[in-house]
């Protein structure tokens, strides 16, 4: 199915390799296209790591300045919900791997199931995050003028919540974006676009999803397990 050679708009190609319909005109073959895409994705992930590294740096600097405040403040977080979300994301990484693997083995039905599972687990993560956020809102642990919590007795606790909301917020946006991409993959898989001959988008989305999970693995101890 993937080996249908389509003359790309009547262009003259001197090389005679068979053309997959997913092969763009400026690549010689699918392998080259796949490798280029993979390099591009890894570079994008590098930029993501550097984006978050700025946040980690800010966190460490503020935490060094206000160690006691950060310990006090982190008690307001619900550790069990944090553990739950960590597990949810770990399992979602597993389902994502299985989706990629199923696609590579041409098991399209299994690919679909695993993609749905990954999407669902992302949703669970966001729901738990919603419960946590609404709890904070209720306690008045909000940013700016909305910070009305009176129990803070160590200066600097406010900064902990700043970092909490900024870091988990930006991470949450990444989860939402990831779910959007996975929804697109589900749609395309239903259309029978992917097969063992071409599943680059699933593979690359998998890389992205693992990175987002990995960042959570760092966020969790930083925010929930301060000591």
């Amino acid at each position: 199915m993937s080996d249908i050679a389509i003359p790309a708009g009547g262009q003259a190609h001197a090389h005679a390799s068979p053309h997959s319909r997913h092969l763009q005109h400026h690549f010689h073959n699918s392998a080259q296209q796949f490798e280029a895409s993979k390099i591009g994705m890894w570079l994008f992930l590098v930029t993501e790591i550097l984006l978050f590294s700025g946040l980690f740096l800010a966190y460490f600097m503020l935490q060094t300045r206000h160690p006691q405040a950060f310990i006090e403040a982190h008690h307001h977080l619900d550790r069990s919900l944090g553990v739950l979300n960590t597990l949810v994301l770990l399992v979602s990484s597993f389902t994502m791997v299985m989706a990629v693997q199923s696609a590579a083995l041409n098991r399209i039905k299994a690919t679909l199931i695993y993609l749905y599972a990954t999407f669902g687990l992302g949703g669970v993560f966001l729901f738990v995050k919603y419960i946590e956020y609404s709890h904070k809102f209720h306690d008045g642990l909000l940013l700016g003028n909305l910070f009305s919590y009176k129990g803070a007795n160590v200066p600097g606790e406010y900064l902990f919540f700043s970092m909490y909301f900024v870091m988990t917020g930006i991470h949450g946006i990444h989860i939402i974006v990831g779910m959007g991409v996975i929804a697109y993959l589900i749609w395309r898989t239903h259309q029978r676009v992917f097969s063992s001959a071409y599943y680059t988008p699933i593979d690359l989305t998998g890389l992205y999803w693992h990175l987002v999970d990995l960042i959570w693995i760092f966020l969790f101890p930083l925010l929930y397990l301060v000591s």
Binding site: F52, S53, G54, L143, L159, S162
Partner: peptide, 18 residues
């Protein structure tokens, strides 16, 4: 990316007084 996050933090600073 580092200027990206810097700009985000500056924006947060202005919008939410983080």
């Amino acid at each position: 990316p580092v200027i990206g996050i810097t700009m985000v933090l500056l924006l947060m600073e202005r919008l939410f007084q983080v």
